[in-house]
Simulated assay, not measured.
Amino acid sequence: MTISFDAVQVWLDLAGIFFFAVSGSLLAARKQFDILGSLLLASLVSLGGGVIRDIILNSGPPAAFTNPAYLAPPLLATVLVYFLFSSVQRYTSLLILFDAGGLALFCITGTLKALAAGMNPVAAVLLGVTTAVGGGLLRDITANEVPQLFDPKDLYALPAFTGAALTTILWVSGSFNALTAGAVAAVVFAFRVTAWRRSWYVPLAVRGWHRLGLDTADGGAKD
């Protein structure tokens, strides 16, 4: 049985929504939100990037409002965190891991949808990155956190750029398939997590500025 491209994209979207939703519920737990606040934050982070993507593409109502299946992952994530969070000790690591999973999948699906809509490769990469980082930006702002996108001690957008660019190259060359998509997702996930654990970063806006609070002598290991 052959699975259509649209079906693959929907399943990738749903997986990315779930990963991002868990990160939102974990942040809500850390902020001591109630369960309704957890559900709303999970929905915001997991659906926000896709809504932004669909609005930019002007392809009709966003998928989050036309496909009821898109509402299930945030609800599932909220319930799982509610029952399991009390036994989770290293929640910061879990938040980063789930966020990295969502980032890896959304930079692919956002780029694919842009390419399928006829956007040029550069625009497709930019929309893929926007899809990947948009939800996390909304999550952090809503929870009164410094957005990871603008954290000078972390890499967030660069892994998404990498994934979107690789997806575009594979698409243009005719090499994009389920196997190569999995490879791209793995590269982005590993890049994001490794950058976080080792405190990789890009240069600041002005040469000579120093990152406040960054201890470069400790190797950057994190929980």
Score class of each variant (00 low, 15 high):
Phe176Met: 13
Phe106Met: 12
Asn144Ala: 15
Met119Lys: 15
Met119Arg: 14
Thr92His: 13
Gly24Leu: 00
Gly49Met: 05
Ile108Trp: 06
Leu41Pro: 01
Asp151Ile: 09
Ile55Val: 12
Pro152His: 10
Ala186Trp: 02
Pro74Lys: 00
Ser175Asn: 15
Gly135Tyr: 01
Ser87Cys: 08
Ala100Trp: 01
Val133Gly: 05
Arg139Gln: 01
Ala183Asn: 09
Thr109Asn: 09
Val206Cys: 08
Gly101Ala: 05
Ala64Arg: 04
Leu115Ser: 07
Trp209Ala: 14
Ala28Thr: 13
Lys222Pro: 03
Thr2Gln: 15
Ala117Leu: 06
Gln89Leu: 13
Ser173His: 11
Thr92Lys: 14
Ala63Arg: 12
Ile52Asp: 00
Ala185Met: 12
Thr78Pro: 08
Val188Met: 01
Val206Ile: 15
Ala21Gln: 02
Gly110Cys: 03
Leu95Asn: 08
Ala7Val: 13
Ala164Lys: 04
Leu138Asp: 03
Ala69Arg: 11
Ala178Gln: 12
Asn120Ile: 09
Gly163Leu: 09
Gly16Glu: 00
Ser4Lys: 08
Lys31Trp: 06
Ala21Phe: 05
Thr168Lys: 06
Ala21Trp: 00
Asp154Gly: 06
Leu115Ile: 10
Thr194Gln: 11
Ser4Asn: 10
Leu149Ser: 04
Lys31His: 10
Ala185Pro: 06
Ser25Asp: 06
Gly48Phe: 00
Asp151Pro: 02
Pro68Cys: 06
Ser86Met: 07
Asp34Ser: 07
Val125Gln: 06
Ala221Pro: 09
Pro203Cys: 06
Ala104Trp: 03
Leu12Ser: 07
Ala28Asp: 07
Phe98Glu: 01
Asp140Gly: 05
Phe5Gly: 05
Ile108Pro: 04
Tyr70Gln: 07
Ala15Gly: 13
Leu138Val: 10
Ser43Glu: 03
Ser4Cys: 09
Tyr70Asn: 08
Ile35Met: 11
Thr180Pro: 04
Val88Leu: 15
Val51Ala: 14
Ala42Gln: 02
Ala69Gln: 10
Ile35Ser: 12
Leu126Pro: 02
Asp54His: 06
Leu12Ile: 13
Thr180Asp: 02
Asp34Gln: 04
Phe106Glu: 02
Phe150Met: 11
Leu94Pro: 02
Leu212Thr: 12
Leu80Ala: 15
Asp99Gln: 08
Leu97Cys: 15
Leu94Ala: 14
Ala63Lys: 10
Phe18Arg: 04
Asn67Gly: 09
Phe65Ile: 13
Gly48Asp: 02
Leu12Asp: 01
Leu84Arg: 04
Gln9Trp: 07
Asn58Met: 12
Leu39Cys: 09
Arg198His: 15
Ser43Thr: 10
Leu103Phe: 09
Val8Cys: 03
Ala185Trp: 01
Gly135Trp: 00
Leu80Trp: 03
Ala195Met: 11
